[in-house]
Simulated scan of single mutants.
Amino acid sequence: MVASTAPLRGTSFITGAAGGIGAAVASALARAGSPVALLDHDEAVHETAERLRGSGAEVYSVVADVADRHAVDLAVAAAERRLGPIGVLANVAGVLRVGPVLDLDDRDWAACLAVNATGVWNTGRAVGRLMRERGAGSIVTVASNAAAVPRVGMAAYAASKAASVMITRGLGLELAPHVRCNVVCPGSTDTAMQRALWPDPEDDGGADAVVAGSPESFRLGIPLGRVADPADIADVVVFLAGDASRHITLQSLTVDGGATLGV
């Protein structure tokens, strides 16, 4: 039996939707026919919403912190009132704090855990309860290939992303068979977060060093010869959210141009 190619069922709730991968995921889910609820701590999330409305999408946007359980619960309830039952949750909100384990400020460690791990915990519980009651839904968490491969100066980020992977898998096991939960692990992607690591964020040449790799810091290059576009990640999220992946759950799909060599 061939999986359905019908539009996604229900509303899609996307965190981290103000820009980067989150905004790309929101656009892709809207194109797939889903009303989209957008959450971000950045007021720019309303600008993303306006762009999507201009293309004919049904949109609701809210400024909130995914690390705040109460705020998440309120945002989820408001999204359902405005747009209807949530059928897809895309956890895309994330922060990057870099520095050696021995030197990183405690506040940076706490920020990584709060957004990248606790944020997924909060949204997964809030939306997961509703999906369990209805007996249907799909949850996709955007983690990182750093969740499986260590990087110099990125232990806090990697640990928090590894936590988000296991939260999602644990949730998927508990919500089966009716709710599927999967993970997308991007590698280097052309976003503001990625460019902040380059010597000059405005210089596209910064991608060259990423593609080439850095053996002295145990960093692999990218065999496909390019950093990802946010749309490359968004397309995989849409695939995992819809019926085309109806027999896939508890999985992590790495989208990094081969950078982690299939780890």
Rank of each mutant, 00 (worst) to 15 (best):
V88K: 04
V165R: 02
N91E: 05
A3S: 11
G124C: 04
E43L: 12
D232Q: 03
A75W: 13
S245I: 15
D65V: 13
L104G: 00
G205A: 08
V63E: 15
P7H: 04
A212S: 09
E50R: 10
P35A: 01
D208W: 04
A176I: 07
A18R: 06
G119L: 12
H247F: 12
E43P: 09
N116P: 05
D73F: 15
L197Q: 09
W109Q: 03
V140T: 03
A44N: 04
A32N: 11
E80W: 11
G262I: 14
A114Q: 06
Q251K: 10
D208A: 10
V63I: 12
L113A: 10
R169P: 09
A67W: 06
G16H: 05
M193T: 13
A114L: 06
G257N: 08
G22A: 05
A126M: 10
V183W: 15
R132S: 10
T249M: 02
G135W: 04
V88D: 07
A176W: 13
G213I: 12
T15C: 02
A259F: 14
G262A: 05
G56A: 10
E133K: 10
A231R: 11
D40E: 08
A111D: 06
A176R: 09
D103N: 12
R69S: 13
V184S: 01
T11W: 05
L197K: 05
V127H: 02
H41T: 12
A6C: 04
S61D: 14
L261N: 06
R107I: 15
A176E: 10
R53E: 06
A147R: 01
S252D: 03
N182S: 13
D40G: 09
M131F: 05
V72S: 07
T5H: 06
V88N: 14
V76T: 10
G213K: 11
G128T: 07
E47D: 07
A49H: 00
D42W: 03
H247R: 14
N122C: 07
L83N: 01
D40H: 11
R246N: 07
P223N: 02
V152F: 01
T260R: 06
A23T: 06
D200Y: 08
V127P: 07
A143W: 02
P85E: 14
G170Q: 06
L171K: 11
